[in-house]
């Protein structure tokens, strides 16, 4: 068994799931809405990057910066246009709205860029690999995922712990009305959460696209896995979802090596088992529904 290689591959794809799951969690943390459009928002942003790279042929760093700005605007806009106008929305109603946004984005991308798969690559030379231990190849892609995931985690930690806005976001999540009374502009908090989440999703989306192909439906499967990783980690805790993502990647790869036909479902079975024992996930602190 190529233990080392499975470990590296499992952790790399796991970090990618974890990164994307973080995007899901940020929205969930502030508004308790599971954003089913998350995958398609990332898909749309990746297409914008693709468009800038292939049609305008601008350098990658510029395309990346523009895509990041675009993804923030996209997140803010979807929150502002679709979720905010809903009068007295129930959680379920909001989730259905995000499903609608998902369909809309997928349709738009199909109309603009077509359904045919596109080639998308990050400026990482695929032929350069590192072999620190024999039989354990580490690719540039894996290194980039680890690096980006770590930086984003660190920034989020600092943001939620030490900045005023971060504290305001946590307050909004814990009690929206109390937060409002304390002078927090909760609506603005929601906008910012959506913008953040969309940005992190777009980064993860580009990682996924460079591993496979870019097409309007390419984020559906990664979204499901990232969502499962988020549930495993507890939906509320950012370190939790990263660990959830890592576990997911490792379980999949190690089981998938011996029983390939079980690969797509084994992680979900583990999640169901975990949820039977710990209904709110491995790392959730809060699970009492507020009245």
């Amino acid at each position: 068994m190529p233990f080392g290689q499975l470990l590296v591959e499992g952790l790399a794809i796991g970090a990618c799931y974890g990164l994307f799951a973080t995007a899901v969690v940020i929205v969930y943390k502030t508004s308790e809405v599971v954003n089913f459009a998350q995958g398609e928002m990332a898909m749309f942003s990746s297409f914008v990057a693709f468009h800038i790279l292939t049609v305008y042929q601008w350098p990658f760093w510029l395309a990346f910066v523009i895509t990041m700005v675009f993804s923030i605007l996209l997140g803010v806009l979807i929150e502002y246009l679709f979720l905010r106008p809903a009068k007295h929305p129930s959680i379920l109603g909001m989730i259905v709205i995000t499903l609608g946004a998902e369909m809309l984005l997928m349709g738009l991308a199909g109309w603009k860029w077509g359904a045919e798969q596109k080639f998308f690559s990050l400026p990482l030379n695929p032929s350069v690999t590192y072999e620190p231990v024999k039989g354990m190849i580490v690719t540039n892609w894996a290194i980039a995922v680890f690096a980006v995931a770590s930086v984003i985690m660190l920034l989020l930690y600092v943001f939620f712990k030490y900045t005023k806005l971060g504290v305001a976001m946590r307050a909004t999540q814990q009690n929206k009305h109390a937060a409002k009374i304390m002078g927090i502009r909760t609506e603005r908090v929601f906008s910012i959460a959506w913008g953040f989440s969309s940005l992190i999703g777009a980064v993860a989306g580009m990682f996924f696209a460079s591993r496979a192909t870019l097409d309007p439906a390419f984020m559906m499967e990664p979204f499901l896995r990232a969502f499962a990783a988020a549930v495993l980690g507890g939906l509320m805790s950012i370190p939790g979802v990263i660990i959830g993502g890592g576990l997911m990647g490792l379980i999949e790869n190690f089981f998938g090596f011996y029983w390939p036909s079980w690969k797509p479902i084994v992680a979900f079975i583990v999640i169901i088992l975990v949820l039977c024992v710990r209904p709110s996930g491995l790392f959730a602190k809060h699970y009492v529904k507020k009245v």
Binding site: P2, E9, F208, M220, E221, K263
Partner: peptide
Amino acid sequence: EIPVEPTEKDFASQILRLKN
């Protein structure tokens, strides 16, 4: 002989099996 599901996006373990 390694099966993959139509929607799967990560083939690392399958490819390693073939390589092995």
